[in-house]
Design a binder for these strands. Sequence first.
DNA 1: GAATCCATGCCTACTAGTAGGTAGTCATAT
DNA 2: ATATGACTACCTACTAGTAGGCATGGATTC
Lengths: 193, 193
Amino acid sequence: MHGEMGEKILNTADSIMVQHGYSAFSYADISEAVGIRKASIHHHFPTKAGLAVAVLRAHREKLIRSAEMLDAQMESPLARLQAYIHHWEGCIRGKTVSFCVAALLGAEMPSLPEEVQVEVRLHFKALGDWIERTLKAGVRKRVIRLQGTVAMEAQTLMAVVHGGMLSARALENCDVFRMVTDATMNRISTEKS
Amino acid sequence: MHGEMGEKILNTADSIMVQHGYSAFSYADISEAVGIRKASIHHHFPTKAGLAVAVLRAHREKLIRSAEMLDAQMESPLARLQAYIHHWEGCIRGKTVSFCVAALLGAEMPSLPEEVQVEVRLHFKALGDWIERTLKAGVRKRVIRLQGTVAMEAQTLMAVVHGGMLSARALENCDVFRMVTDATMNRISTEKS
DNA sequence: GAATCCATGCCTACTAGTAGGTAGTCATAT
DNA sequence: ATATGACTACCTACTAGTAGGCATGGATTC
């Protein structure tokens, strides 16, 4: 469906949106970054909202694919969650991708075109569902011990990850992300801290 | 320092920024909302960055003032934290102010003027410090029991609150905020859940 | 095999609208 | 008399999006 250039635009749009959000990124920014004229980007992605939707869809598909891979490759559900969190820690530390696009757009929700809002909602749903499934599996395998309901703990873990990202960005200090995620993972782990 | 109109502009800017963030709000929006011409707003607040700084400063002063009031009026540190969280639950539910301005701008950090970034950082610092102090007092009074270090737990609580706001906004479901904050408060409380 | 057709991809050049910000005028109130 | 606060009118820069031209290259047709 997309050509080589289409993909290049998509990736560039992703990395720009991660830095600046939806309203503060423009076709001109992408144009300069990929070395193509502004109008040519409209050829690949006619509207800004459509481009954002494409970016979010790709992001969600990547999330789902990665989750499936983790599920298949790692035995321990606890280790899978840890891998997910570790992935983001790496992203934040190697500051090129210092935030989750969907989470960022979640903050901008009220000023987003409806079609974009839908994709953001889908991401939060998909992520929450995977965490919940994984927590459940961890409880079954006795590597995870929860204090509240699974839904509660899944939403809490997601909130900690996103809130941790926010703090890391605001304080310009990646350690805070590790701190809060470590605390949370230690809490739900049945192993000794 | 500010006249009556200055305050009106400030409040309006606040509520618009809470909805749309920094880059997606304009002097024209405020102009329409307060019933004054665009140029007249520049008379009160010459630059957009300056206006944002003023909004954040007011917001932080209000936070500090409220925290001092809570500290003075409520005996239990646990109840103080609960009051803070309850305040936000009310804001989110009565959807007029559905987010913390400073937290929102924290997400936009990389595309913010430096002067604004400073204020955002100060807010995160101030909030984190108050939570940490309050947790410490709660531990002393044996109404709060922590598993990790105080700094860890303070940052975690802040992350849960901000992450919960994000989820509530993204999923358009305020209950998720109550869910994650309840879970967290129950966890650190020494009372029966 | 050559000529035609048509889609792809990029371009220049443009539009209407909005952004933040400025200059200068005028009324009011101290 | 001067400062305040509002105004009209304007500026430059940038926004998303459009129109139409030009090259390529792979099919189809004669």
